[in-house]
Simulated assay, not measured.
Amino acid sequence: MTAHILVADDDLLLCEVVRFKLGALGHQIRFAHDGLAAVAAVRAERPDLVILDSMMPVLSGPEVLRAMKDDAALASVPVLMLTARKGQEDVVNALRSGAADYLTKPFLPEELALRVEALLARHVGGRDRATGV
Score class of each variant (00 low, 15 high):
G125R: 12
A40N: 14
M68C: 08
A32I: 01
F107W: 00
A94N: 04
A32E: 01
R30L: 03
V39R: 02
P109M: 02
M55N: 15
P78F: 09
T104F: 04
K21V: 05
P47V: 07
S54R: 13
K86C: 11
A40P: 00
A72I: 10
L36P: 00
R127C: 10
F31K: 05
E89I: 09
L74D: 03
T83C: 04
V77S: 04
I51M: 05
S76A: 15
A130I: 14
E110C: 05
Q28I: 09
R115L: 07
D101E: 14
L52T: 01
E117C: 11
L14M: 13
L49M: 09
A37C: 07
E45G: 12
A94R: 03
D101H: 08
R30F: 01
V92F: 14
R96C: 09
S97R: 13
L22Q: 02
G26D: 07
Q28M: 11
H33I: 10
Q88W: 10
L80W: 02
L49I: 09
Q28G: 13
V17Y: 02
A72Q: 10
V18R: 00
A100D: 05
C15Y: 01
V133W: 12
E117T: 13
D70W: 05
G23L: 07
A84K: 09
L22Y: 03
L12I: 13
L52H: 02
T2P: 11
P106V: 03
E89G: 06
R129A: 15
L80K: 00
A99F: 05
R30W: 00
V50P: 00
K86P: 00
L6W: 06
R85P: 00
V18F: 02
L119D: 02
E89M: 08
A118T: 15
L120S: 06
S97Y: 07
V7F: 04
V39N: 02
A3V: 06
D70H: 11
V58M: 06
D48Y: 07
E117P: 07
